[in-house]
Amino acid sequence: MSLKDRLLEDMKSAMKEKDLIKKNTVQMTRAAILQVEKDNKVTLDDEGVIEILAKEVKKRKDVLPEYEKSGRQDLIDDLNREVEVLMGYLPEQLSEEELEQMIKTVIEEVGASAMKDMGKVMAAIMPKTKGRADGKMINLIAKKYLT
């Protein structure tokens, strides 16, 4: 079963279970997928869907600090639940140790030694970690090794 099919089935089951947050989250994600497909006149495979799911998670994580400033715990809980729902569709996330090891290997492969080589490192590591790690985390770890 493809990810798009799984999203559709999960949306239907969320409607039956009256799980409003899950239904809305999956519905918004499906809309984002359809929008990309229409705009680019393509049919996304699972890898393309994972990319969109990762973007949706990132969007929600980026607004979380704003919600925390507002002090609205109900909105914070809903947002965390949305992230949790979306993470269920992404491949297993890499641990910090696994990420560090991958970054060290890439740094050696591309011959990076200073911050000016950050672009080379990021270009080499991002395809390997697509949907499995946050770009900010990768960037921070890479900076640590490229001082």
Rank of each mutant, 00 (worst) to 15 (best):
104 K>D: 11
80 N>D: 11
128 K>S: 01
124 A>T: 11
23 K>V: 01
144 K>L: 02
100 E>K: 11
135 G>F: 05
7 L>G: 02
84 E>D: 14
128 K>N: 05
86 L>C: 05
60 R>T: 01
30 R>L: 13
49 V>M: 01
118 M>V: 07
41 K>F: 02
66 E>W: 02
81 R>K: 15
67 Y>M: 15
3 L>C: 05
63 V>R: 14
64 L>P: 08
69 K>L: 12
18 K>I: 06
44 L>Y: 06
80 N>R: 15
68 E>S: 15
21 I>D: 05
24 N>E: 15
14 A>V: 07
143 K>S: 06
116 K>I: 11
125 I>L: 08
146 L>I: 11
10 D>M: 09
86 L>G: 07
1 M>W: 02
107 I>L: 02
97 E>W: 06
141 I>K: 03
43 T>N: 14
14 A>D: 05
130 K>Q: 12
138 I>C: 05
135 G>I: 08
18 K>F: 11
121 V>Q: 04
12 K>M: 09
44 L>F: 08
9 E>S: 07
133 A>N: 07
122 M>Q: 06
125 I>F: 07
40 N>D: 09
30 R>S: 00
100 E>F: 03
139 N>E: 12
56 E>W: 00
7 L>M: 02
62 D>C: 03
138 I>K: 05
25 T>M: 10
106 V>H: 03
79 L>A: 12
36 V>A: 12
48 G>A: 04
118 M>R: 06
28 M>N: 15
123 A>F: 04
24 N>D: 15
52 I>K: 08
93 Q>R: 11
29 T>W: 08
110 V>C: 09
30 R>E: 11
101 Q>N: 10
31 A>F: 11
61 K>P: 02
18 K>P: 03
120 K>D: 13
90 L>D: 10
15 M>C: 06
99 L>N: 00
49 V>Q: 02
79 L>R: 09
60 R>F: 02
92 E>G: 07
17 E>K: 10
73 Q>G: 07
12 K>N: 05
95 S>T: 15
66 E>Q: 14
6 R>D: 02
17 E>G: 04
75 L>H: 04
82 E>C: 15
120 K>M: 11
131 G>F: 03
20 L>M: 14
109 E>N: 11
26 V>W: 06
123 A>I: 10
18 K>C: 03
